[in-house]
Design a protein around this nucleic acid. Structure first.
Lengths: 247, 247
DNA sequence: AGAGCTTCTTGATCCACGTCAATGTGGCAA
DNA sequence: TTGCCACATTGACGTGGATCAAGAAGCTCT
């Protein structure tokens, strides 16, 4: 809980080697907010005074839907799946959190969704009450957080258009374009973008089945709108963005 | 722009009699925020210092998607359709605003959607810049607005579940239950709820066609989950909520 | 290297919902 | 009253994507 401003550091750079059952990884302990968090240096330094950094391995849970919300999180590395479950097991992925993203900014009493790690994730955690007290003392930071939450609302509304009024192929194309844009903010523009989530996750995000996602990805590749990088299906190239956008 | 706290008043209570092309209705001029706005008296009184009240008839536009956002609105009476259009004309309704609801709280540069009046609407308008300056001077009000925006985000995420993972019948049921709940906040719980929007609007909100909406409303009525009030199709009864919820 | 996973792909078939078309209905203007 | 028009309903038919089923291709553990 000591002061630290700016980037983060870790003791080792590969994935955590420790047991899957451990939530905290002492070896890759990080400090401070993600540099991607779109905050000014003074804001970073204020928040970092409260930061408690930790690391979880892939498939571990950060928090679960309907549980009392205990913390606010800022992702510093890795990606996180955010989803809601219906009583009968149907699942809707409501988003994916990438480095720089905050979780729990709504300050609601309970979590609106579950969150678990798609890859090894390092994050920076704040006690909800400390966080709340701090933003009460720092109005311009609250203003910033409000604008982040508003941005998320517009993303959610865009997703409503995608879910309600686009065909399966358009959904996939929009998803890939949107993800490319988000990765560009994190690690710079690139034709190759990582898909840390499974086809099932993509389907649950877009209101499609795994089979449909798989078929359409293959089709987009056949039609040369994308390239599924051969060494694994979790990496794709978007050589010509406009080609994909016009589908 | 004078001070006024609490409820609103109008000069006549029926729909506006003046020309359809007029945006402001001098006859039913209102003052102040909606009493449904879930604000404390002191917050109401602060905001009302900036309030500029007005009235529009059904089908008139409040603002349009992508235009520079000039105002923040609080609906005091009537209902408003919020929607996004795709270039090819497909439409996604992203929500319906009822009395008490704010529009434009995100303080974004441009409107994320279009808004037009489903019925005669009275609303309370704030200049965006005045509003922004005022919340900067009033942190606890900003905090309140942030929590309203966050609530909208959770509604949007719930809508994502509905759009992505529910059947047509479940969509209609969820829509009616949600609308009933919202009307209850405005005018108290009642088995009869108004549907100020067309079947097309409902379809565009739920990702369905008019025909499907119509068919399923009829079916729900046949199965006695709802009653379409005979004197018009824009009013339904939900005699047994649990009956509707289990569909 | 092989066993046992999970994930991904591909094909055949099905059906919920969309599309197209016809008709009904209520409000309003002339 | 009549015609018009936007909205709603209903039926017949078509189809995009779901479902079911079978492999293939990667991981991880031993």
């Amino acid at each position: 809980m000591e002061a630290f401003s700016g980037s983060f550091e870790r003791k080792h750079s590969g994935p955590c080697a420790n047991s899957k059952s451990s939530v905290d990884c002492e070896h890759c302990r990080v400090r401070g907010l993600s540099v991607c968090a779109a905050l000014e240096p003074d804001e970073l330094s204020i928040l970092n005074r409260l930061a408690h950094a930790f690391c979880v391995n892939a498939k571990q849970t950060l928090f679960e839907q309907d549980e009392p919300a205990g913390n606010v999180y800022n992702i510093t590395a890795g990606s996180v799946r955010l989803y809601k479950l219906l009583p009968d097991g149907r699942r809707q992925v409501v988003g994916f959190a990438l480095p720089g993203d905050f979780l729990g900014l709504s300050m609601a009493e309970r979590n609106a969704f579950s969150a678990d790690a798609l890859t090894t994730v390092t994050a920076c955690q704040f006690n909800r009450q400390d966080f709340s007290d701090m933003i009460d003392r720092t109005p311009h930071l609250l203003r910033r957080l409000h604008s982040m939450a508003s941005h998320e609302l517009t993303l959610a509304q865009d997703q409503m258009v995608i879910l309600g009024r686009r065909t399966a192929e358009e959904k996939i194309a929009a998803f890939l374009i949107g993800l490319r844009k988000r990765w560009a903010k994190v690690s710079g523009a690139s034709v190759t973008i990582p898909l840390p989530m499974t086809r099932q996750d993509i389907g649950d995000f877009l209101g499609l089945t795994v089979e449909t996602v798989s078929r359409l990805m293959t089709r987009l590749a056949r039609e040369k709108a994308i390239v599924i990088v051969p060494d694994g299906v979790r990496l794709i190239d978007i050589p010509r963005l406009e080609r994909l956008a016009e589908t």
